[in-house]
């Protein structure tokens, strides 16, 4: 589903964020991406969502080489990827409904057409009663769940999450992870970047570990490797 082949990323100024990264996330797989701050987790996610381009190597999604995507095709690539951010990236002057409906409106849905899907997505994250609220009226955990609802409302085949539990206590964090598990169970590939090792330890998912831009552990059992 997501494939990195010898990917290196050097930022202007010479900082090498990633070097020679190889891995593959299979369709319907859920994996964690971990490492210290600055190890390259965010850069790796940005390469998938085309916020950055690799310096060398290539990134493939569903077999499509992202190098071949022109600037005008980038929006369409992003529509296939649900993205969740540590700081939620919600529009504070819009209601929860408008926030979650945004990806559908962008796809060309009318508000009436979008309503059913928005309600379904909010129902999944348990916030259907907050549909008319503004994000500022919600707690941090609720805001994060609105972000998740927005990411899944178009039912993308890939979910990327960058420190989705960053500001949440362990109980709320686990709730968020359970949500991801639920989406994974219906076939969505999920890649979660986090430095919360305690959280990962309690779960038995594949964990990719980055250190100073190198993938030191791709999380596969030695016998599973060819």
């Amino acid at each position: 589903m997501i494939q990195f082949e010898q990917v290196s990323k050097t930022y202007p100024g010479g900082h090498q964020a990633l070097s020679q990264v190889n891995f593959q996330v299979k369709p319907g797989e859920m994996a964690f991406l971990t490492g210290h701050s600055g190890a390259g987790k965010s850069t790796l996610l940005k390469l998938i969502s085309l916020m950055e381009r690799p310096t060398t190597g290539r990134v493939l999604i569903n077999g499509h080489d992202l190098r071949k995507m022109s600037a005008s095709q980038v929006p369409y690539v992003r529509r296939d990827i649900g993205m969740i951010f540590q700081d939620h990236r919600l529009l504070m002057d819009k209601t929860v409904f408008d926030n979650v409906a945004l990806p559908l409106i962008i796809e060309g849905y009318s508000v009436q057409e979008a309503r059913k899907r928005v309600h379904a997505a909010l129902d999944k994250v348990g916030l259907l009663d907050k549909v008319r609220h503004y994000p500022t009226m919600l707690s941090g955990g609720e805001q994060q769940r609105v972000g998740i609802a927005r990411a899944v409302v178009t039912k993308p085949p890939i979910l990327l999450a960058d420190e989705p539990t960053g500001n949440l206590d362990p109980k709320l964090s686990m709730e968020i992870i359970r949500l991801f598990e639920a989406f994974n169970q219906v076939g969505v590939s999920v890649l979660i970047a986090t430095h919360d090792l305690g959280l990962i330890a309690r779960l038995r998912y594949r964990t990719l570990t980055l250190r100073e831009g190198r993938l030191i552990d791709d999380g596969l059992q030695p016998e599973a490797q060819p």
Binding site: S72, Y76, R89, L102, I106
Partner: peptide
Amino acid sequence: DEIIVMKLVGATASF
């Protein structure tokens, strides 16, 4: 900020 969010969720420039 709104434009950044729109770009992140796949809005085209013309939109």
